[in-house]
Simulated assay, not measured.
Amino acid sequence: MRIFLLEDDETLGFGIKAYLVNNGYDIVISKSLEEAKKNFTYDFNLILLDVNLPDGTGFDFLKIFNIESTPVIFLTVNDSEEDIVKGLNISDGYITKPFKLPILKAKIESVLRRVDGVEEKLNYKGLVLDEKN
């Protein structure tokens, strides 16, 4: 499973990537909208978006790339009711920082199960057996 992570905090991005890679995911990180324009392709299974970026927002990312079928989870410090409702209305999840990595992993798995239907993969220590592929 390929995940695109748009996160400007390098330490947090490194931690998320390391944790998810250790759990069998392939992660591509960008730290800004400009960098995302160079790194993003439409073959990701899930997108994790920070709302606050140095050159825009995660909401801007969705407009630029016209994301329709790929699931999106927002990761942000923005915890106002207005921001959460806005985020949930256009995404599959909204997690406020700080959060625990096992909770993020559980949310990712929940969203992917719902999108992909019954999970047909076996994941063990980074080795993934995918019945479909």
Rank of each mutant, 00 (worst) to 15 (best):
R2G: 00
F4T: 03
L5Q: 01
D9K: 08
E10Q: 14
T11E: 15
G13E: 10
F14G: 09
I16H: 03
Y19P: 11
L20C: 07
N22T: 10
G24Q: 07
S30M: 00
S32L: 01
S32M: 05
K37I: 07
K37Q: 14
K38M: 11
L46Y: 01
I47F: 05
L48H: 05
L48F: 09
D50Y: 04
N52E: 14
P54S: 09
D55W: 07
T57P: 06
T57G: 05
G58T: 02
F61V: 06
L62A: 01
E68L: 14
E68D: 14
V72H: 04
N78F: 12
D79E: 14
E81F: 08
E82M: 10
K86S: 04
I90Y: 00
G93D: 01
I95W: 12
I95K: 09
P98K: 04
P98G: 10
K100E: 15
P102R: 04
K105I: 00
E109C: 00
S110G: 13
V111T: 09
V111I: 11
L112N: 04
R113G: 02
R114N: 12
R114G: 02
V118L: 13
L122P: 00
Y124M: 11
K125R: 15
K125C: 09
K125Q: 13
G126D: 03
V128R: 11
L129R: 02
D130N: 15
D130Y: 13
D130E: 15
E131N: 09
